[in-house]
Amino acid sequence: MFLKILFVLLLGAGVAYYEVPKLLQQQLKRELIVFGCFLLIGVALALATVLNLPVPNPTDAVEYIFRPVVRMLYPG
């Protein structure tokens, strides 16, 4: 468990270390902000998965939305 958390954090730090200096050098503020938000979302999702916390699952959402139609087409 601990190793997995460390792995995720290291990967996240590695990605930031790779991208941020390039963006800072080119003075791309907008890119930096969007990149930061995406990386936060990504690392947070990965950490939640590693820690077995509930993660919003798009498949469930899709199945919830389309269930009535599928029930209609496939009774039972």
């Binding site: 990967l11 996240g12 990605v15 790779y18 991208e19 963006l23 791309l28 907008r30 890119e31 930096l32 969007v34 990149f35 995406f38 990386l39 979302i41 990504g42 690392v43 999702l45 990965a46 998965t49 993660v55 699952n57 798009p58 498949t59």
Partner: peptide, 23 residues
């Protein structure tokens, strides 16, 4: 409205791996 798509590639990878595992 970014100038390049490359900064988004690696963060997207995290989301993709998570979704493919828990989906």
């Amino acid at each position: 409205k970014l100038k390049d798509y490359r900064p988004l590639v690696l963060p997207y990878a995290f989301v993709l791996v998570v979704l493919s595992v828990i989906g």
